[in-house]
Design a protein around this nucleic acid. Sequence first.
DNA 1: TTGAAAGCGCTAACAG
DNA 2: CTGTTAGCGCTTTCAA
Lengths: 344, 344
Amino acid sequence: MKRVSIKDVAKAAGVSASTVSYVLNSTPTETISKETKQRVMDAVSRLGYVPNLNARSLSSRRSSLIGVLIPQTEPGKELMFSNPFYGELLSSIEYTARQHGYHLLLSGTKEDQDYLSIAQNRGVDGVIIVGTYPGENLNALKTLGVPVVLVDSYVKDDAFHTIGIEDKEGARMATRYLIEKGHRRIAFVSGSIRENGVNIKRYQGYCDAMREAGLPVDEQAVYSGTVDYEYGIAAAREFLARGRKQTAAFVTADVISMGLVKGLQQNHVRIPEDVSIVSFDDVYLSQMAHPALTTIRQDIGEKGRQAVQLVLNASKAKEHHHTECILPLRLVERESVCERRDDP
Amino acid sequence: MKRVSIKDVAKAAGVSASTVSYVLNSTPTETISKETKQRVMDAVSRLGYVPNLNARSLSSRRSSLIGVLIPQTEPGKELMFSNPFYGELLSSIEYTARQHGYHLLLSGTKEDQDYLSIAQNRGVDGVIIVGTYPGENLNALKTLGVPVVLVDSYVKDDAFHTIGIEDKEGARMATRYLIEKGHRRIAFVSGSIRENGVNIKRYQGYCDAMREAGLPVDEQAVYSGTVDYEYGIAAAREFLARGRKQTAAFVTADVISMGLVKGLQQNHVRIPEDVSIVSFDDVYLSQMAHPALTTIRQDIGEKGRQAVQLVLNASKAKEHHHTECILPLRLVERESVCERRDDP
DNA sequence: TTGAAAGCGCTAACAG
DNA sequence: CTGTTAGCGCTTTCAA
């Protein structure tokens, strides 16, 4: 029950605490004799010594800890994962971090919550924040002195590294695909469209594609709510209420699509015969859907890997070099779209 | 960039560091005058002071950190979340912990990895481990001296607190329901059936229900693989290869069901007309499924809440009182089962 | 009601 | 090649 400390090991090995520290950290400048090393290692395993990382962090100012913040941007959802996207991303972040000997300090946050304290008080080596908007809290993070990586955020600030995708281009790709398939009236369904968020970019891409094809952007064709299954259902209801005007929809998240499809099918609207859908993300849901979703695929695993890599690189670097990483997107054709040549 | 420490606050407030500490922790035995308190608080907010929790943890031996370990029990999956169940559980754990002022140290682990070091290292106040089996690593955790809560594990050891569900009874309930609906030949589809795991309990429940109804348990009706979507697809293939002998299946996880349904439908087997399915978990997937899954619902949110509560209670308690918590289950009827009166 | 001092477990100059 | 020393930032007796 009594924790064995570095001193105990030192005593057992007949050396000083610093020697033990040297051996354990294989400090580059110091050279310890093979024998001493061996004696120390023996003592370590005999006593089952495990270094106290808090103490280490206190004196060395590195913690091998990465803070991961998943802000709650959907009002009323207290939990982190209304969208499986987060789970997949987190999985990848955790795995990559672990491979590099780092642990994760995980926290959701209310949007107005103080990011700084969450990170600062644990002495994290870096912070990864998913999908946040500009604000006071973010600014506070600058004083932290550790690298901050923003995932899927359009906060423009050289103090932060960013990793994201071509949101606008992806949306354009999706919409254009629908247009090529003969659709003329195309709905846009997304979470809330906020300044500096991904959805506004995707909306722009949607508008661009429409305009390029000489098609009008109808306000009545835009559906905006929250990024969850329930909203998909609600959007379906709304779609019917507004008179089923469109023959296709570009939906900015697979979870929403799942709800939309379900809601539509319950009202005997067939997918894709009556309404075609191109979705976004390609989380595992999209294959499970019925019909399987044609969707803009982003490589979520890679996003997580890069996010961690960005933190690690930045924390090694002596100077701050703002890094921006944009991952490619591609359309995956499945079963939720059908050709339409008769659209007026 | 320079971190402000307790000393800076002390200086600014014209008091000693210990006084600041007293004020911040509202130490019960000590009484600080209102004015001093005020001066300290002013300095704190003026300087933007945030206590370093590592240092605090070092000297006070409590960290407000809960370690969460999600062991990788499916070989070949390096990521945590092959099953959305984990995401939902983690969400709930995180939220509850945060409400109580705790943070989460998250780690996946290879099954053979050293749990101890992961936790001990950081001086966590407690550990939550999800779905693990007995083993050396677990034993090592006993020496840690902090409460350990095992979620969904049949490790029998008073040193650990446990929280789980009536796996056997749930399976019995599911199978009996299918029998009541007129099915006689019922498949059992699950992840690996291991000693001390949940699936063996569910298998027993399945067998019990069959036996109680005077039905034979056919080895050919048992499908066992991994807990993921892909295995569901594989099981569907296997089901066809074995000659489509059953008219119903009890599946021990919603993710597997999703794959099974998809695989079956692709081969023109209709659900529920040709094959009825009762699933398990009631993760959000089950509503999204087509048809929506009739499933044994467990309250995952509650599981997470209780797990955290168990840790907190235990870490407050002076003595170790082994606690066992079993959550109720209930069947949710949706669309994946149909009556069958013509089954031989 | 407050402060001084010791120490949590470790690292990192600096000596030797 | 290895030990001594001085902290990292905080809590906590013990005295005043």
